[in-house]
Amino acid sequence: MKAAALLLAGSMALAACASDEDTSSGSGGGSGESSAASGDLQIGLAYDTGGRGDKSFNDSAYAGVEAAIGDLGGEVTELSPNADGSNRVDLLTQLADDGNNPVIAVGFAFADALAEVAPQYPDTEFAIVDQSVADMGLDNATGLLFAANEGSFLGGVAAALKSESGHIGFVGGVETTLIQEFEAGFVAGAQAAKPGIVIDRQYISAAGDFSGFADPARGKILAQGMFQAGADIVYHAAGGSGQGVFEAAAEAGGRAIGVDSDQYETVGDPALQAVIMTSVLKRVDVAIQTFITDYSEGSVEGGSDVVNDLESDGVGLSTSGGQIDDIKTQLDDYTQQIISGDIEVPTTP
C-alpha cells in the first residue's frame, strides 16, 4: 500500500543533525546513550553495516528516531552489527529483551533475523527498512519500503543533462536486488534524457558480502577508474563507501551524486561538498519518524508494508548547492510522467 503524505519539512536539517551527533556506537554491538529527555517511548535501533556515522543510510535512520523523540519524548538504544553481520539475531533479541518497543531494523540484511526474533516477542512492534514483510507472516512487523528506482531515474536524468562528456558512472555497494533497483532507475533515466550516453557500472562487493557498504577505499578505486575512462559524473548507492566516490570526484575534477540523505549537507568537508551535484533522497528519516508516530498513536498495522515513492514524496532529489536548478523544468516533467504512469521505471538492470 502507499504511504500517506509524509511530513517532509526539516528533512535536510534532520540529516545534518544526525551527522553532528556522537558516533560512538561500536561495530561490536554496544548501545548508545539517548540525547533526548526520558519519556515513555523506548526505541530500539539496530543499524546496518557500518553503524552510525556513514553520513548516509544509517545516519538518516538515526535522524528519524531523533526527530520522533523530539516530538514525543523517549529515548533510543542503538546497536550495530559486527563486521560480518553474524550477530543480527542477537541485536534484535537484546533490544526486545531490554524492553524497547518499537524495535527498528535498518536494512534488508536483517530479514532472516527478524523472521526468527519477531515471533518470540508478539507484544513488541518491529519495523524493517528495505524489506517487505507482507509474505513473512509477522503480525507485529512493518516493512518500510522505498521506490529507489524512481528517485534514481531522476538522478540519471540529472546526470545525463549535466554531463559534458556524455559518459557517466554508477557505483553500487553490494550487488543485491535492492541496489540493482538504484542502478536500473539511474540507467533508465539517463538513457531517456540522452539516448546513447555511456554508463559505466560496477559493484564493490558481491551479494552476501555486505562489506561493500563500508569500504570507501574500494569505492574510490572504482570511481577513479570511471573518471579516468572519461566519465564526468558518478552516482553511488553504496552507503559509507560513497565517501570514496566523492574523494575520487574531487581529485578528478568531476562531480558525484549522493544517496539516501542530502549528502551535500552531511558530508562535512567543503572540498567534497563542492562536487556533490545532487543526492537521490530515500527519506528513511521521515519514514521512520512516521512509523514511530503511528506507533505512539496506536495506528500501526502490523504484517504490512508502507511504500514511499515519488507520489508520496518518499523519494526525490536534493537541490542543495543549486547545481541542478537550471534543469528543474525537465526534472519536474519526468517526475509527473512517472507519477501519472506515463513512464514505468524498471526495477532490474
Rank of each mutant, 00 (worst) to 15 (best):
I324F: 01
H236N: 07
Q228N: 07
Y264F: 14
F126W: 06
L114N: 11
A256Q: 10
V133Y: 08
A68T: 02
A190C: 01
G26N: 14
G219A: 09
P195E: 14
S31P: 08
P122L: 09
F246H: 04
A36H: 13
L14G: 15
S34E: 02
D309H: 10
D215H: 03
G99N: 11
Q263E: 12
A134W: 04
F210N: 12
I128P: 03
V106W: 08
G189D: 09
M226Q: 15
Q94S: 15
A109W: 06
G137I: 06
G53C: 10
V133C: 02
G303F: 11
D135M: 08
S312C: 11
V65P: 13
I199E: 10
A184G: 05
A248L: 11
I339G: 05
D40I: 01
F126I: 05
G314E: 12
A287W: 01
Q323V: 04
I257F: 07
G230V: 03
T142L: 15
L95P: 06
G50E: 05
H236V: 02
R52V: 14
A18C: 11
E75I: 05
A36Y: 01
S24H: 10
P195L: 05
L161F: 00
L145M: 15
E301H: 13
Q191I: 10
E164Y: 00
L41P: 06
N100E: 02
L144C: 08
T293L: 12
D123V: 09
F246L: 14
A61F: 04
E181W: 00
E175H: 08
D313C: 07
Q131W: 01
K55S: 02
K282F: 03
G32P: 03
G321K: 15
D215L: 11
N82P: 03
A83V: 10
D139M: 05
S27H: 08
V117Y: 06
I199N: 09
V174Y: 04
P346V: 13
A68M: 04
K194P: 00
A134V: 14
L178N: 11
L8V: 15
G303N: 12
P349C: 05
D342H: 05
I292G: 10
L72N: 05
A248E: 07
L45H: 07
M226I: 06
N308L: 15
A148I: 15
L331V: 12
N149C: 08
F246Y: 15
L92A: 10
G258M: 12
V171I: 13
F291H: 14
V280E: 15
V284A: 03
A3F: 01
T77V: 07
G225C: 10
A68H: 06
L7P: 04
I199G: 01
T77K: 14
I128C: 04
N101M: 06
G73S: 00
V103E: 03
A214N: 14
A238P: 03
A188C: 13
